[in-house]
Design a protein around this nucleic acid. Structure first.
Lengths: 191, 191
DNA sequence: CAAGGAATAGACCGACCTGTCTATTGGCCA
DNA sequence: TGGCCAATAGACAGGTCGGTCTATTCCTTG
């Protein structure tokens, strides 16, 4: 039965992901992951070749999961395309306020692993492409003037909001970013 | 003559600041600072009690210098209060494009030193207060509707722009953030 | 039951880290 | 010239890190 082995691998990745996100990839050592997941050292190294690759897998999974969650939240928030864009910022509030929130996993890891671009760079690329695509889709649906431009402006706004909520706390950040988005859009759709 | 000692201290702080900003505070060890500044180990520890305090002093100095530079650049960019706010984003372009640019030193260090809030927290507080004050002053001068709200929105925009330029490169980021600011303001001052 | 593969505990290695200590050298002032 | 303090080079300690190796135990399947 190799399900057990696969489940164990998932468990390790779960524990590592929590620790990496909560304390940063550089502040969490292999020993801690081993201890908290209750497995043997060699079990980890049998499933993951190195810490760097473990980090890469953590980032890949968490970023994809987040984009999927974010996209779904937006979709179910509203049917109106214009409202959907604004909902993309309302939706952040709950996330920002959750005790687990600690900013963007990809951005954090990119900052922590400044020099060694190896594992993070690819994930960052895919993640940002997906997120940009999501925003572009929303803007195109809403039929605003220049989708590329508006989507990019909203993307920068999202980044600022995530960083602000991380560094200063969640209070009012999501609501304010929604108002910003509102104003950006109203300037783009002048009717 | 204690000038020599003070100058040496400045030199160490200069070298350490460059390294910390360029590669991250966690990715630069004491040994590297010693080697690249050409001083003895004990000289460093005679001037700075610990690496954490050296980091704190680096952040304090660099953040104050940056706010002073940013403020001056904005002041000299335009006399018109409304234009000045927009100039606050134009001005970023040169900085983003400089080869030394690697994002916001305070934000980076805050992410790197996630758990140990000791040295960074105070600096972060002062830095953000100064920057918020700067924006509030600009908005108040321009006489827009709700200075607190607008300044805060612009602040989030600035953060997003700095992070974007850091992670994705400088191309177009400053110009786009200026357009965003333009739209935010035009929505606030509807005349 | 027997065999084989995976998980286990833990010793171990070399590298790196911050910080301390010592013994020596060099420059400034009385 | 003699004395004082700071800077120097480098050894050293204690800790953490990522990663390897081994010997043992457990579980599943034939």
């Amino acid at each position: 039965m190799q399900e057990r082995s696969a489940a164990l691998r998932e468990h390790i990745l779960d524990v590592a992901s929590d620790l990496f996100y909560q304390h940063g990839v550089r502040n969490v050592g292999i020993d801690r992951i081993i201890t908290e997941s209750g497995i043997a050292r060699m079990t980890l190294y049998n499933h993951f070749k190195s810490k760097d690759l473990l980090i890469q897998e953590y980032l890949l999974r968490s970023s994809r999961q987040w984009v999927a969650w974010y996209s779904a939240k937006i979709q179910e928030a509203s049917q109106d395309p214009g409202e959907r864009i604004l909902a993309a910022f309302d939706v952040l509030d709950g996330w920002f306020r959750s005790s687990k929130f600690r900013g963007c996993s990809v951005a954090n890891a990119s900052v922590e692993l400044a020099d060694e671009c190896h594992p993070v760079a690819e994930v960052k690329k895919e993640y940002h492409a997906n997120l940009r695509g999501l925003f572009r889709g929303l803007v195109e649906e809403a039929g605003a003037g220049d989708p590329e431009e508006i989507a990019e402006e909203l993307f920068v706004l999202l980044r600022g909001a995530m960083l602000s909520a991380h560094l200063d706390g969640p209070e009012g950040v999501a609501a304010r970013s929604r108002r910003s988005a509102e104003r950006l859009l109203s300037a783009h759709i002048p009717n």
